[in-house]
Computed example of a mutant assay.
Amino acid sequence: MNVLIIEDEPLAARQLQTMVQDYDSDVTVLDILDSVEMSVNWFAKNPHPDLLLADIELTDGQSFDIFGHVAVRCPVIFTTTYDEYALKAFRVHSVDYLLKPIDEATLRRSLEKFRDMQRLYGAARPALDLGELLKTLRPVAPLQPDYRDRFLLKQGARLVPMEVIDMAYFFTRDRLTFVQTWDNRALMMDYTLDELGQKLSPQRFFRANRQFILNVKAVSHVHLHFNGRLKLDLTPPTDEDVFISRDRAAEFRAWLGE
């Protein structure tokens, strides 16, 4: 079986490749692509695979955009972070999906479903009607919440706009909220951490504890600590000890890409 993987997170792509080949050592992963543009060019130049594993959100758009440029003549398993409600449309069209973070048992069930489909329909099974799929999916709901990409910060008598990409982590001190920037400035904000948790993308930011919300790139080292906790080193460094509780350790490790 020939499989093509479209995934823009290198660690997630490697994990998918490993799990697919652990499922069946005879599987050939033809390529791993990380963008709409690369995928369109690949399909234009290569025979189509037996199965496509495609992440929805890519660096230059959504994988749905690929199907607007080329006719994909193979079954597709989508990988996504979207919730059950938004994905109901996929079931109608027999397109399977894996909800991130992906575990090996779930992937195996999807691959078994694909094998069953092959045995039932044979190689002549018609391609999925992806155009009709998109018509069904798009009216369901917005696929992604409108997370903030900038904030307006007070600095004395001035209001200063700041991009979220410039923010390393958020923390509280003496009942005040601050943002630590990559250039090591601590600036006060008019939001609580609870409010910020609703405005920041959970793919990029994680609520470590009652004191910290972290950008994934701010976590420089993770240390195993007493009683199942994790101790973190941050960039820029902080004078506070930052811990992940035992109850949230597994969620945190999955967020980092384990």
Rank of each mutant, 00 (worst) to 15 (best):
E258S: 10
R91S: 02
R158K: 14
R173M: 00
Q203S: 15
Y97L: 08
F78T: 00
Q17C: 15
L58V: 08
E240H: 07
A127L: 13
K113L: 13
Y121S: 04
P75R: 05
D26I: 02
E195R: 12
M162I: 00
N209V: 12
T235W: 12
V3D: 04
D239K: 05
V219R: 00
D149A: 04
L187Y: 07
A218H: 13
L159V: 15
F206G: 15
T79F: 11
E163L: 13
R108V: 08
R73S: 15
K199N: 11
D31G: 08
E258P: 08
N46C: 13
A249S: 06
D183F: 12
D239Y: 01
Q211R: 13
Q180H: 02
A124D: 15
D26N: 01
L52S: 00
L16W: 09
I56R: 06
D55K: 09
E7R: 06
C74Q: 13
E132N: 12
R108T: 05
F64H: 06
S35T: 13
D34A: 01
F114A: 05
A168F: 05
A208F: 13
R91F: 03
Q118L: 12
Q144L: 08
G61I: 07
L137F: 12
D129Q: 15
A44P: 10
A249L: 03
F151S: 15
R73C: 14
M117N: 09
A250P: 10
T136G: 02
R91I: 01
I32G: 08
Q17T: 15
Q21K: 06
E132T: 14
H69N: 05
N46Y: 12
R246K: 15
M117G: 01
M19R: 01
M1Y: 04
R246D: 15
I5L: 11
M19K: 04
H221I: 11
Q21V: 01
T192D: 10
P202N: 11
E37M: 06
D194Q: 10
E251W: 05
T80E: 10
L230E: 14
D239M: 02
N227Y: 06
R207H: 01
A254G: 00
L11D: 07
K100S: 06
R148H: 09
Q180G: 03
F114R: 08
S39A: 14
L187W: 08
N184M: 11
A71H: 12
K154H: 15
D239A: 07
V20P: 01
T59R: 06
A89H: 07
T238A: 06
I77A: 10
D22P: 03
H221V: 12
D65Q: 14
F178D: 05
L11M: 05
A250W: 01
